[in-house]
């Protein structure tokens, strides 16, 4: 999953897209050098000492790792996956929503210009 996520972050760095993690490692200090090795540069919430049983995974009813949610620019949940989806599926879903976000952003600008 990490290599594909790295390439997503790279490919979409100038687009209205963000990869946000929710990390459930308990011993964060021990793990951080490994995140660096894997070039996990994107921002993550930390679940705290309870790890997978922490408040965030509980509130989000996460029952397996990885779980992914795809959220559009309005904050609406559009897809969710338990386990990694096929890369082509994930890419297509993201591309579609990024295009929507850009056209919505464009409209907003047009509106602002007209005023």
């Amino acid at each position: 999953m990490f290599p594909h996520e790295r390439s997503l972050v790279n490919k979409l760095k100038d687009e209205p897209f963000a990869l946000i993690g929710v990390n459930s490692d308990v011993d964060l200090a021990a793990m951080k050098p490994k995140f660096k090795d894997e070039q996990i540069t994107w921002r993550s919430f930390w679940c705290g000492k309870d790890g997978t049983a922490g408040a965030i995974p509980t509130a989000w009813n996460v029952r397996g790792w990885p779980t992914l949610y795809l959220i559009d620019h309005n904050g609406t949940i559009r897809q969710k996956w338990l386990g990694s989806p096929a890369e082509a599926v994930l890419d297509a879903e993201i591309d579609k929503l990024v295009a929507d976000a850009k056209s919505a952003g464009g409209k907003k600008k047009e509106k602002a210009g007209a005023e």
Binding site: V22, S24, I71
Partner: peptide, 25 residues
């Protein structure tokens, strides 16, 4: 908090498409 202890919110990213990944090493 993020992994460096700095607080942030999911809604900070409103306006962007967010892939929210529950992960662990």
């Amino acid at each position: 908090p993020d992994l460096d202890g700095v607080n942030f919110k999911l809604s900070d990213y409103r306006g962007k498409v967010v892939l929210l990944d529950f992960w662990g090493y």
